[in-house]
Structures are given as structure tokens and as C-alpha cells.
């Protein structure tokens, strides 16, 4: 009797020790995102649920994103401002699951930046973190394709999940102010995007620079919102004309966008981008210098067989170093088309 009880106790404690660990290990990133998405959906009232859910093939909702404030380009879904604190936490938990730690931090810094902008503009009701929207296309699933959208002014995340795949294209990250203070610390949501690009530019020799630097001005994103499915002829310096160190720097710069999504999806994406590196181009337009600790005023573009990145400082607000638009696309796989068509 005593021995049986002891054995039971031993087994029970062993089970308690092992079970959580086994559960954590068994959880794939997709399973984790699905769990957190379902947890978010469970917090919603039926009417809210109806507004947050869209059909997976709703092309209109897919393309309903912009760099512009939500007042000008109305977003659908649920805004953070109309959610309860518990619901907002559920949204953020879901995002944290879908993104890498740095990606999640970047998104939070962009959202916080819009709150700073709101305050700078005398509580302008057009801006602020309440005006970011969440929507889900399709039903969260570990096998069937579905999509998670989060965005507002200066942010559009389109995350298509198909089984183990996580596709972040097309997505838009932008910032105004591009540099602000929070709790005594300087925050630059898109700082690395400028710093790493300048490091790469400065590593180029004069012949490489002559190819990379375009002799014309690019004032805006060429493949911004509303330009789905377009592929422009690449220009600039081809990665085949870069040395190993410069190629690594280029990949590291690209990772500022490709690394926003969760690690295993980012690793798969990076492998694809590495495979297409020889056909990847780096083009620069504008000033080749920048003030220490500040972003530059130049436009640049990285384009490969499965990649378009554009970085376009905006003169708006009087200081282009403080207002940045960027776009991240995969002309072969925007919205996960490559995985879902057929």
C-alpha cells in the first residue's frame, strides 16, 4: 500500500516535471501563433469577432493597408482603441508569437512613435496607438492558409501563415519621428535600416559606388501601397560585384526586414534570399553622408528575384531624417501567393 502510494507520487512528480517541458518543445511556431490567435478570438464578443474576421481570399482586405493615417485610408478590423486591456494584451501576445523578439520590438517602437507624434501635434486625433488595427483572414490553422494583419499609420504587417511557412510580404515599416526619447533613452525604430545601409555604402570602392549610386533623384517609394504585383527593372550594383564581406553586410541589412517575422520563418526566408543573392541589386540615390546617431536623407533600394526593399526618407515635417517610409515585398510571393495558389 505504502509502496504503491510512493510509486504513484514518484510518477506524478516525474509527470509534472516533464509535461510542461514536453509541451513547450512540441509546440511549433505555427501551433503557437494559432493558439494565441484563438486565445485572442476567444476574448471577443460575437459582434467584434464578425468585424475582425475576413475570408482568406478577400483581396480587398488584403490590400487595405497604407503608410497614410487611418483617417485617409480607412482600415477594417478592430482598432486597439476599442479593445479592453485584456483584449489588447491578447493581440500583443499573438503578434509576439508571430514575430521575432526584435521584430516585435520594432513594431512596438513604430506604434509608440505614432503616440509621440500625436503628442508633438497637440494631441492630434489622427495619430496614436489606439488607431492600429488587427484583422484575421481565414481561420487560424496549423495546416490551412490564413493571414494576420496589424497596422495603421506608418505600419502594415501582412503575415500569411501556411503550415510551417510564415510570409511577411508585403509589409510596410515607417517612422515619424524616426528618433525620439523614451524613459531617457533614444529610440530609433528604423535606425539600423539607415546605419547598416551606410556601413555597406561606405565599404564600397569607387568603382562599386559609381554603379550603386544612381544619378537621379528618387523622391518616394516606387512600389509602395497599391502597387501589388508590379516588378520594376532592377538597377544599381549587383551583388556579384561585391566581395564576401559586402555580401554579408547586404544580407545583414536585408535581415532588418526579413528578420521581423518569427525565427524559423525568417531562417527559411534568409535561405531563399541567400540563394538569390547573385541576382540581388543595391541602388542608392541622394546624400552619401549622415549625421552621427541620425538617419540619412538618401533613398535606397534592394531588389532580387524574390525581394524588393525600398527605403525612402520623406521631406514632410521639414526633416527627412526624421520621417522614413520603407516597403518590403516578394514579387513572387506577396501574400503567400506562391504557397496558396494551385
Amino acid at each position: 500500500m505504502m509502496r504503491q502510494a510512493m510509486r504513484g507520487l514518484l510518477l506524478a512528480s516525474l509527470a509534472m516535471l516533464c509535461a510542461p517541458r514536453a509541451a513547450v518543445q512540441a509546440q511549433s511556431p505555427t501551433a503557437r501563433i494559432v493558439r494565441d490567435a484563438n486565445a485572442f478570438l476567444a476574448t471577443l464578443q460575437p459582434a467584434q469577432k464578425q468585424r475582425v474576421l475576413f475570408a482568406f481570399d478577400d483581396d480587398k482586405q488584403r490590400a487595405r493597408w497604407s503608410n497614410l493615417p487611418t483617417r485617409f485610408v480607412a482600415r477594417a478590423g478592430l482598432s486597439m482603441g476599442e479593445l479592453t486591456p485584456a483584449q489588447r494584451t491578447a493581440v500583443m501576445t499573438m503578434l509576439a508569437s508571430a514575430l521575432s523578439p526584435r521584430g516585435f520590438e520594432k513594431v512596438q517602437q513604430i506604434v509608440e512613435g505614432d503616440e509621440v507624434l500625436k503628442k508633438q501635434e497637440h494631441d492630434n486625433p489622427m495619430f496614436g496607438k489606439d488607431l492600429f488595427y488587427v484583422s484575421i483572414l481565414g481561420a487560424p490553422s496549423e495546416t490551412a492558409p490564413w493571414m494576420l494583419q496589424f497596422g495603421g499609420h506608418h505600419l502594415a504587417l501582412n503575415i500569411t501563415i501556411v503550415g510551417a511557412h510564415g510570409v511577411l510580404t508585403p509589409s510596410l515599416t515607417a517612422a515619424q519621428p524616426a528618433r525620439y526619447e523614451e524613459n531617457g533613452k533614444i529610440v530609433r525604430p528604423l535606425g539600423a535600416e539607415s546605419d547598416k545601409a551606410f556601413a555597406l555604402l561606405n565599404s564600397l570602392d569607387s568603382a562599386q559606388r559609381a554603379q550603386a549610386i544612381l544619378n537621379y533623384r528618387v523622391a518616394d517609394l516606387v512600389l509602395g501601397p497599391g502597387q501589388d504585383g508590379k516588378t520594376i527593372q532592377p538597377e544599381g550594383l549587383k551583388a556579384t560585384a561585391m566581395n564576401a564581406k559586402q555580401r554579408a553586410m547586404l544580407l545583414d541589412l536585408i535581415a532588418e526586414w526579413s528578420g521581423i517575422v518569427h525565427e524559423s520563418a525568417a531562417a527559411a526566408r534568409m535561405a531563399e534570399l541567400r540563394a538569390g543573392l547573385d541576382d540581388t541589386w543595391f541602388a542608392w540615390s541622394g546624400s552619401t553622408t549622415h549625421a552621427e546617431g541620425r538617419s540619412g536623407t538618401a533613398y535606397y533600394r534592394i531588389q532580387g528575384p524574390a525581394l524588393v526593399i525600398e527605403y525612402a526618407p520623406q521631406p514632410l515635417g521639414g526633416d527627412p531624417t526624421n520621417h522614413i517610409h520603407t516597403i518590403y515585398r516578394d514579387p513572387t510571393n506577396d501574400y503567400g501567393r506562391k504557397l496558396t495558389s494551385k
Partner: peptide, 21 residues
Amino acid sequence: LLGATTSADAHQLDEYVQASK
């Protein structure tokens, strides 16, 4: 006036962007 200026501050101000593909 404030409303007007702030709203104007949100996007391209004094430019007429003409993109040709």
C-alpha cells in the same frame, strides 16, 4: 487652423508626385 496644418503635415505637402511605370 491647427487642424488644417496638422492634417497637412501628414503627407506630401508641396509636391505633385507623378509616377510613371
